[in-house]
């Protein structure tokens, strides 16, 4: 069976940690002690654990959505940096740039980009600002660094969350198995008593 009463402690040895508002799951070493300490019966404990599992799943969905957004954002920022670098390189050469730009989805037209000292960056919320090439490079680089850092934190959060999901699922299985085991023992005792 999943757990026997001989194991010491209820899992308090591994302290319940928290990461950025995500509560850590408690690893249950001994189901009996865990149920006694928490003051719950098997049904309530399973219901609580299932609810916690659902909460983890909801948080995971949100984090995955954020991760998708960041993974789409990073290449776009890199592309912007490349364009600004190209414009910087062309500056002072007197060479004009002919670019095909998207007029609408699937329709492209040609534009002549003469020497330019500034670019316009769309910041969102119907706001566009004009920056010099140096300022634009600085801002985009900062945004890129922030996005990469956020993505790293997000990946770590997801890893932590998946660990908590695994622990919770294992705990559910162990509590359930322990309950089945107890019922069998009671059944065996009852059968022996009848005999």
């Amino acid at each position: 069976m999943a757990s026997s009463s001989s194991a010491s402690g209820s899992g308090s040895a591994s302290a319940v940690t928290e990461r950025r508002g995500i509560p850590g799951a408690q690893f249950v070493e001994d189901v009996q002690t865990y149920l006694t300490q928490s003051g719950l019966d098997v049904g309530s404990a399973l219901a609580f654990l299932q609810e916690r599992l659902q909460q983890y799943k909801v948080v995971e969905m949100k984090l995955l959505a954020q991760q998708r957004d960041l993974q789409a954002k990073i290449p776009d920022i890199e592309k912007c940096l490349d364009v600004v670098a190209t414009l910087k390189a062309k500056k002072g050469t007197g060479e004009e740039l002919i670019a095909d730009f998207e007029v609408s989805e699937g329709i492209y037209s040609q534009a002549r980009i003469e020497e330019t000292d500034s670019v316009c960056l769309w910041l969102g919320a119907n706001v566009m600002l004009e920056y010099s090439l140096e300022e634009a490079t600085g801002l985009l680089q900062k945004n890129l660094d922030n996005a990469r850092a956020s993505l790293e934190v997000l990946i770590a959060d997801l890893q932590f969350l998946r660990d908590q999901v695994t622990i919770t699922q294992v705990t559910i299985a162990r509590v359930y198995n322990w309950d089945v085991h107890q019922r069998r023992i009671q059944q065996a005792v009852a059968t022996t008593a009848q005999d």
Partner: peptide
């Protein structure tokens, strides 16, 4: 998200 002044 990046626009530059140009001529058609």
């Amino acid at each position: 998200s990046l626009y530059v002044p140009a001529t058609l």
